[in-house]
Every structure is written in structure tokens, then in C-alpha cells.
Nucleic acid binder design. Sequence first.
RNA 1: GUGGUCGUAGCUCAGCUGGUUAGAGCGCUAGGUUGUGGCCCUAGAGGUCGCGGGUUCGAAUCCCGUCGGUCACCCCA
Length: 462
Amino acid sequence: MELFRSPSGTRDWLPPDSERMAYLISAFAAQVELANYRLVLSPMFEDSGVFVRGVGDESEVVTKEMYDFTDKGGRSLALRPEGTASVVRAFLQHNPPVPFKAWYVGPSFRYERPQAGRYRQHHQVGIEALGPKDPYLDFEVISMLMNWFFSLGLRDLVLKLNSLGDDNCRPPYVRELSSYLEKNQNLLCVEHQQRWQVNPLRVLDCKKEECIAVKENAPKIKNSLCPECSMHFETLLSCLDEHKIDYVLDDYLVRGLDYYTRTTFEVACASLESSQNAIGGGGRYDNLAKALGGNDTPGIGFASGLERVLLACETQGILLPAVPSPKVFLADITGGGKAAHMIHVLRTLGIACDRAFDNRSLKSQLRQADKSGAILAIVVGEKEKEANCVQLKWLFPGDKDRFIQLLTVAADSSRDAGTNGRIFSPESDEPEKRDIIERYRLSDVLPEDLAYSAIKEFFRNA
RNA sequence: GUGGUCGUAGCUCAGCUGGUUAGAGCGCUAGGUUGUGGCCCUAGAGGUCGCGGGUUCGAAUCCCGUCGGUCACCCCA
């Protein structure tokens, strides 16, 4: 029978990459929790209307990329294509006090052709801040994103900024743009000749040569901003200047989600070769709460795709930490029961350890110990079982000097304890190949037992 | 949704213009040491050559289709 595979556009995360993803998330949480953003977990699916009315019924994300379905109760639902609309829906449903500052993490779903850095299920972290319309909140949000990237060690980042105006100044601007596009519509690319009226702003985002030529002479939103919007944007820019956060202004940054007002931004990573080089983006959405049927509440936030951030780290040679393997490994050739008991005690003492199963040969178990990265093997054979002791075998090589130093500590503590200590030290011309094997008494009442004491001592000094 | 490209072992890949039982390295398992890892040596397991059809005496190899990966467009994280 043919094996099942993960669906197109999805992938499995196995160690160590899975752990690097987890690291990204915890680094993000640490960053935003400094600023009092708190975790919100919302459902992975919502009433389709949340996205149709929130993200926009003209946006590509909704019209052609949404995983929507009807459930057994006849409800029209959709897997969330992004996080913001869900969080704002949750905000309106529970009506918490403002300012409401949330961070989130979880999968998003878009039905599109997979590509480098683009998946049908991808994972985003993000923050949303609802309530204040203050431009200094815009600064806070943007600086959170940048600080997280900097804390990971990422370089070659380009922060792109634009302001899309508000209800006062955007409609007149869109009319002005429309009439300009109408005059030049035969010069637009094939697709936009048909579609420019649906959302004129999207033409500004088009990368076709024809449209690029047209938009160069198109009216710019920055020249049409009302005084309030203009002041808001200027305040943000000067604050970014003051704090040495570099940015470039991009008149064409309109972004594909319809809810944005005023500030929009995107962070591109220059070291990502593919065209999917945006590793974070967001903006202000002062009309979103109202569009979802709630009270008029301003808000701003961003989302960042973890897959792309990880990719960006890799292209820059940044190796994020994975979970280290246990340093203690148990080899039991008397059936395995002794190992079961010892490993249980060690873990109770908070010492990470692993063991072999299936009663394999000692050679096999030690091979496994070596491959696991352990530096200490605990060996139980018939002789040890009879004498009620265990053998501690230190696994070389590695950082030899360091280990030898630690061994000295462990050996000293064993002598103090009056045990028989080291019993076996094979002759060898090469000191680094000399095995150091020690035996420690093992009682049936274990936590204060000498073998465990020696191991604890070792890790206290490690 | 459109287009390019690639599918041979767990991984990285050989396999020339069709020609017997499909190979290597790494990895995995075991043995060489009747109870001691790493290096070395030996052996073993693992593949309906993505799948289906066609051409042919004969297909991993050529043709068509299909599925999957990948890359680009579109759009986005």
C-alpha cells in the first residue's frame, strides 16, 4: 500500500528544526512580553464572514486563497488565512479593557501554489494593539518586530513604510487615482486593464513593466494626506529617526489586506533569494473593528511568518539552538529493569537521561550512548547487580580538558564519600583514549545514594 | 490558476546513445572483543527505478498521461 504523505503545501517539522521553530516562538514571547503584550489563542477556523468582512471581499486572500467549507450544521466556516481578523473578533466578543495588547502564534492557511518560503499551512507570530490611535503605539509595534529580528541576529533587513490615509483623505485620493488610471488604462498590464476599478490601490503594487511605468506619474497618497494623517505619520517617522531604526518610504506599499489605514509597513530580508522575502508586515487598521460590527476601535499590529524567519536565519548562517540531548545514558544488560528504576530516579532528580531498550548487547547500547551525545554512561551488568553497584563510564572525546577536570571533581567527591571509587583504568599510551570507569554503591533507597550523589555533583560543576 | 524543471535505497547521487540478477558513499543492524562507545575491517537489511499506459524481442533509460517535489508568475508571512 502506498504511504500517505503530508498534503501539498504542508510540511512536517522534525527535530532539530521543530525545536528551532519553538525557540523562535519563545524568543518572540520574551520580546513582546517585555512590552506587556499577552497571549491570545483564538480558533483556527472562524465564521467565513470574519475574513470576508474583515480582510476584505475583494482581497486575493479571501477571493481565491481561502480554505472555506460548510460544516455538518450548515455553517459557513473558513480556516483562518491570517491572524488579525480573528484577534479583533475575539476582542469585540469579550470586550476587554483598552488598551488591549495581545500576541499570538499559530497556523494560517491559504490555498495557493507552494513555493520557496510559501506554504498552504504556515505559522505566524504577531501582536495586535487595540484602543489607542497614538502614533507612539505605531512606534512601539514596529520596534517590537525589529527588536525581535535584531535579537535573533538578523541583518540586511529593510523596513518599508507608507501611510494609506484615513476615511477623510483616502476616498478623495482613490478618486483622483481612479481618474488617472482611467485616462491611462490602455497602458496598464493586461490584468489590470480589466481590474483597476475593483481596487485602484492594488495597481500600485503591480510589478509588471506597464503598470510600473503608469504608476510613476500617478498621484501619490503622501501628497493627499489630511493634516491629521500627515501629523500621525510624521510623528512616527521622527520617533523612528530618533531611535535609529532605519526605514525606507515606499509610496507603493499598499498591501493586500483591505483593512489597513494610515501606517503600513513590511520588513524584507535582502539575503532571501526568492521573491518571498517579506518576513513580517502589518499596519494600522482603524476601521476593522467597525467593519466586523463592533464599536469603532483603532488598532495596529503585525504578523511574521516563522518559516521565512527560520529561512532568513539559515541564509545568514544563524544557527538557532535546538534542545540538547541528555548527557547521561543507561546501559543495562541484565534485562532492563534496573535501568527502568535508575532512570526514573534520575529524572525525578531533574537529570535528563536516556536508555536503551530491547535488551541489546552492551556494545550496541554503548554505541547508542555515544551517538546520543551523552558524556556519562551508567552500566549495569550481572556483576554490578550482584554487588549492588553501578559503573560510571565517562565518554570521550569532546572537550577533553574540560571533561577531565569534571572527572577529577566527581572522583574527589566519591573518595570523600568513602566509596571504592575508581576500580578500573586500562593501560594506554594515549591518555585521551584511556577509559575512566568508576563504581559506586547503589542502595535500594536511592535519592541520597552515592551513585546519584556523584552524578549530581558532576552536573553541579558542569 | 499559468509556466519551467526534476522524480532511482532513510539521505546525497551514479547508471553513457534501450541489452542479463539496479549500483556507490553516508546512515542503519550485527559480528570482529564469551561485559565496554568513537577509528578500522567484515557481513547484512533496505528499491514493484513516483504511478498508469504505450513503443520494443527487451524500458530506470524513449513517448503520452498522471501524481508529487521544486522554481517562477500572481499574491502574501
